[in-house]
Amino acid sequence: MTLDRLPPGKTATIRKVGGTGALRLRLLDMGIIPRTRVCVRKVAPLGDPLEIRLRGYELTIRMDDARKIEVESCGEGA
């Protein structure tokens, strides 16, 4: 499953970070790396981007970019 498919309120573990160039490096720098737990908080009112929580802080990323992050769902809460 990819991160954009994870419903709000659900937590998952990152499996693989795709993407290329500056975007991928930015994702990695922000701590989006394999084995990290991430929770989707909400979707922006216009349907995009996403608000996610990881490593104790909130981050917003676009759906297109979230599609490049593979996760494995592991239940409720964060």
């Binding site: 160039g21 975007l23 802080y57 917003t60 676009r62 970019d65």
Partner: peptide
Amino acid sequence: GNPVPFVMELP
């Protein structure tokens, strides 16, 4: 060219 990625912190 590639815009700077919009991966932004919500403090």
